[in-house]
């Protein structure tokens, strides 16, 4: 990576982290809780987006989210906090490799259905193995940062920067073109020397691990987690909704999307109240999918490009007049 690009990215990470750090330092309890939720959603959405760049649309990321939480919780007593988290996240990667290998040949919709069924079966697995996983009574993961929300926010912000860095690596020159080629035309990718299978499984493994990181953060918030907290449809759909709202194939998109979705949720809750707000919230997401498939980031980029274009055309007109 050249120095300019490195500097650009460091500036970007600082800009992403800054608002979260400000909220943490201000210690406003409501906003700290919101910011923690946003950061966890953003990490999970980044994980989802990395996989989707290879054309694999998952509706089962709650599985990795939950496994990250459960894995880190169950392995920390064995390995200590640092290695315990690492082992929990590696477990997610290993399971992702297996799932990736099994679902490799499935066409788009079938792949999505397979990931959804997988997340449901993991929840069942937890319920039927109470001795190992605590079953329906749940588990008590070690609490992050001694249970101080502002410190938890700082820690999770650091995790978000890690996730953003991983996302950027897979948007770099080595992976972005190859991933998009795999998504668009795998035969063309293979005919260009790309080991298609290996890269699809690599994307799955990385995506699973980043989702596991999000789950480990989430499980460490209160020190108590039951299966319904993590293995729910909500965590399956959320990364997809967040990424579509913010913009696919970018690092900024899932982060902006997480902020926008949370804001939308709060506003809808304020005006509609009860559980009715979920209908409004769902409707807005559907509107976005139909009306703005490029997401907020893609839309903003389009605006910038359109504004530059007339300038370029003016140049050519000038050139023509001059000649």
């Amino acid at each position: 990576m050249n120095a300019a690009r490195l500097l650009n990215r460091l500036g970007f990470y600082a800009a992403v982290a800054a608002p979260f750090v400000v909220v943490a330092v201000a210690e406003h309890p409501f906003f700290v809780q919101i910011a923690i939720g946003v950061a966890v959603s953003a990490i999970l959405a980044l994980a989802w987006d990395i996989l989707s760049r290879t054309g694999q649309v998952s509706l089962g990321h709650a599985a990795f989210f939950g496994m990250g939480g459960y894995g880190s919780a169950l392995l920390t007593p064995v390995f200590g906090p640092v290695l315990g988290w690492a082992a929990g996240i590696l477990l997610c990667g290993a399971v992702a490799v297996l799932l990736g290998a099994v679902t490799l040949r499935l066409r788009r919709l079938y792949f999505t259905i397979a990931t959804l069924s997988f997340s449901l079966s993991i929840q069942v697995f937890i319920l039927v193995t109470p001795d190992l996983t605590g079953g329906s009574t749940g588990i008590m993961p070690p609490v992050i940062a001694g249970g101080s929300p502002p410190h938890q926010l700082l820690f999770i912000t650091a995790c978000l920067v890690v996730a953003a860095t991983v996302s950027d690596i897979f948007l770099g020159p080595r992976f972005r073109p190859a991933f998009f080629m795999i998504r668009n035309n795998p035969h063309l990718a293979a005919a260009s020397g790309v080991p298609v299978t290996r890269l699809k499984i690599l994307a799955f493994a990385v995506s699973g691990m980043v989702a596991g990181l999000a789950g480990a953060c989430y499980a460490g918030l209160y020190g108590y987690v039951i299966p319904e907290d993590v293995f729910t449809t909500n965590w399956n759909v959320l990364p997809l909704a967040v990424t579509i709202l913010g913009g696919m194939d970018t690092t900024l998109g899932p982060i902006i999307g997480a902020v926008a979705l949370r804001a939308l949720e709060e506003v809808a809750r304020h005006f509609v109240g009860g559980v009715g707000y979920q209908v409004v919230y769902g409707a807005v997401i559907i509107l976005f999918i139909v009306g703005m498939p490029v997401g907020l980031v893609g839309f903003a980029r389009g605006l910038v490009r359109r504004r530059r274009k007339p300038a370029a055309e003016a140049d050519t007109v000038k050139a023509r007049l001059a000649s």
């Binding site: 080595r174 073109p177 063309l188 005919a191 020397g193 790309v194 080991p195």
Partner: peptide, 30 residues
């Protein structure tokens, strides 16, 4: 491809969002 055989497609279908440079970079890298 690694053994030294390459082919073109009769109907080129490349990802629209990739640039010329990015498409050519794929085989250069892989």
């Amino acid at each position: 491809v690694h053994r030294g055989l390459a082919r073109t497609y009769q109907v080129p279908k490349v990802p629209k969002e990739l640039t010329i440079q990015e498409v050519i970079s794929v085989p250069l890298l892989y």
